[in-house]
């Protein structure tokens, strides 16, 4: 084993400068975290944003930070060095999306999918049969 190229050899690091990658990842993550925190705690006072806009901005900042950490800390990319990890990550994110969005969607619309109670059901049947 060559210590100085071991991480590159096992495909965990890209060939380019990794120190810059870690420092960049750290600084960008710090910026995203602090900005998101300011938005959540004082957005109405500082920037006079409405709540839905502040929420969307916070979520966008979180997504940016996730991409930053995945690429700068975990060195995940479609390049050949980490292609296998990248592909299984994409497949897992599909499962995660189905699981999360599907659960929230079904559970939040549960009431409209349930049969009404007896009183309401009788009223509904009467209205349908024209009695």
């Amino acid at each position: 084993m060559n210590v100085h190229t071991y991480f590159e050899d096992i495909g965990i690091w890209p060939k380019d400068n990794v120190l810059i990658s870690y420092v960049m990842g750290f600084i960008l993550s710090l910026v995203c975290t602090v900005l998101a925190y300011m938005l959540a705690t004082s957005s109405v006072l500082l920037f006079s944003f409405s709540v839905p806009i502040a929420v969307s901005l916070i979520v966008i900042l979180a997504v940016i930070q996730l991409v930053v950490q995945l690429s700068f800390f975990l060195h995940l990319s479609a390049r050949t060095t980490s292609r296998d990890r990248y592909l299984i990550f994409c497949a897992t994110m599909f499962i995660v999306a189905v699981l999360f969005i599907g659960s929230v969607w079904i559970m939040n619309t549960l009431n409209t999918r349930m049969m009404p109670d007896t009183t309401n059901m009788n009223a509904y049947m009467k209205s349908q049969s024209g009695l």
Partner: peptide, 9 residues
């Protein structure tokens, strides 16, 4: 983000 920031906003 999801628990704390969106919880206190």
């Amino acid at each position: 983000t999801l628990v704390y920031l969106l919880g206190i906003i």
